[in-house]
Design a protein around this nucleic acid. Sequence first.
DNA 1: CACTTGACCTGTCCGC
DNA 2: TGCGGACAGGTCAAGT
Length: 289
Amino acid sequence: MPELPEVETVRRGLSELIIGKVLASATHDTPKSFPNSESDVKQFLVGARVTAIRRRAKVLMIDLSTNYSLVVHLKMTGQLVFVGRDTRFGAGHPNDSLVNTLPDTSTRVTLEFEDDSQLFFNDQRKFGWVRLMPTLEIPNLSFMQKVGPEPLEADFTPQQFAERFKRRARTNIKAAILDQSVIAGVGNIYADESLWGAKIHPQRLVETITPAEFEKLYTELRAVMNLSIEKGGSSNRNYVNAEGKKGSYMDFARVFRREGLPCPRCGTTIEKLRVAGRGTHICPYCQTL
DNA sequence: CACTTGACCTGTCCGC
DNA sequence: TGCGGACAGGTCAAGT
């Protein structure tokens, strides 16, 4: 999916678009995408007002006035796209947005508001889900119990960052940084980008990383994620924001999906390898074992 | 427990 | 063109 910057971009967009709106209905195609019963929808969603939109790691929470929340995980190809009443009834919308063609074959859940606007959950690969549950029970989800700290929080220090990796001392740094129980929200793009920034080879064993290297990795990770949020996230293929538009971080990526191109730092040709089961991009000169 | 691999799905791209 | 296989931004469950 969508990693932390993409989910945060969706959160900010949705906050502008749907807070205060009242839900009228929810429909879905498969229970895998939306497991709740009709009766749950009727009792806790229909007539409920959207009060807040929150994010933890890569999970979004749309809080409702019924003290229930729509919890959303976009996984690899999920999208949450808002279609306003005017667009829906034919007033049109810029051509660089998805909204003119929704719903489509990837639409899994359709939420309608009382003002006739809509929110679509699209997910080509069906890994993602939307789930209606009591707001107070969200922290009890097993994912929430084990997820690590938010890396962009102001009070998150380099010392805390390094400390979190001790639990994964004997694996490679790429597997560890992708582990959501170590640090929240890092996925394949920002793992590669930050490791390149810190000049750390992704297959280095965690126990061999020096304190100075951890500090550099902390700084680089925060920098690439903050830059990506500023650019509206990365749109490799499927990702779009709440208005159906792509983000531009990929224009600024330095190694991710740039195999065969020169390293922006030294000019050496960027290579692609497989680490922790994921496609991994490195500069073989800047990042060595 | 820590670590690795395969499974979950659909679509697209690349080589023959 | 057609077909098969690899691969895609993420987690889980199962295996060692």
